[in-house]
Simulated assay, not measured.
Amino acid sequence: MSREMYKKERQIADETVKEMLLSCKEGTLAVNGDDGYPYCIPMNFVYTKDAIYMHSAKYGYKIDALNADKKVCFSVIVRSEVAPELFTTRYESIVACGDMEFVEDDSERRMVMETFIDRFSPDFHEGGMKFIKGALGKTAVLKLNIKDIKGKAFRSDKW
């Protein structure tokens, strides 16, 4: 699962990758889908306690796929910009692989949902806490236990 990066000079330091995850809002979750086909889903996420957390309805294709196989890949495009003069793209990206866990502990579930409110709806904290109270029982909280994570970037004089 963990391979060396081909262009090692583009690898981003681990601590920088963690800092970047704190500022990003969405990525793409890839699961093993039906008939051997991958299934990728855009997802909001939060990074805390060295894990990537997401939330979802408790049912659907994604949940079925995770129940069948917990191995996942999650990618984030931190930023990108076509560099037409260089015939390439400037970018910063992150790819994490690991096993997805359904969080069952109520205190961890609440902490994750509160982190989502703090991150995505900071001006609506009181309403967010009420929302969590009503939605927590209907929500699957997913924890990506990271086994491998790498950041990669191509920057030129403009970045």
Rank of each mutant, 00 (worst) to 15 (best):
M100I: 15
M100A: 15
E101D: 15
E101R: 13
E101A: 12
F102P: 03
F102L: 12
V103D: 07
E104C: 13
E104Q: 15
E104W: 07
E104T: 15
E104Y: 08
D105T: 05
D105I: 06
D105H: 02
E108F: 09
E108I: 08
R109C: 02
R109N: 05
R109Y: 08
R109E: 04
R109H: 07
R110G: 01
R110W: 00
M111H: 09
V112N: 11
V112F: 13
V112L: 12
M113G: 08
M113A: 10
M113I: 11
E114R: 10
E114Y: 02
E114D: 14
E114N: 14
T115F: 04
T115V: 04
T115H: 02
T115I: 01
T115L: 01
F116K: 01
R119E: 06
F120M: 06
F120T: 05
F120I: 01
F120V: 00
F120L: 00
S121F: 05
S121T: 05
P122M: 03
P122V: 00
P122G: 04
D123C: 06
D123W: 08
D123P: 04
F124G: 00
F124H: 01
H125F: 06
H125E: 01
H125S: 00
G127P: 01
G128M: 04
G128T: 05
M129S: 12
M129P: 10
M129W: 04
M129H: 10
K130L: 11
F131I: 00
F131V: 02
F131Q: 02
F131L: 05
I132L: 09
I132W: 08
K133I: 01
K133C: 03
K133Q: 14
G134I: 08
A135R: 13
L136R: 09
L136T: 12
L136Q: 15
G137A: 09
G137F: 00
K138D: 07
T139V: 06
T139G: 09
A140R: 14
V141M: 05
V141C: 08
V141D: 07
L142H: 13
L142N: 13
K143W: 11
K143R: 15
K143A: 13
K143T: 15
L144K: 03
L144C: 05
L144N: 03
L144A: 03
L144S: 04
L144V: 01
L144R: 02
N145C: 09
N145R: 15
I146Q: 13
K147C: 04
K147F: 02
K147R: 12
D148P: 06
D148L: 00
D148F: 10
D148E: 14
I149A: 06
I149P: 01
K150I: 11
K150R: 12
K150F: 03
K150E: 11
K150W: 07
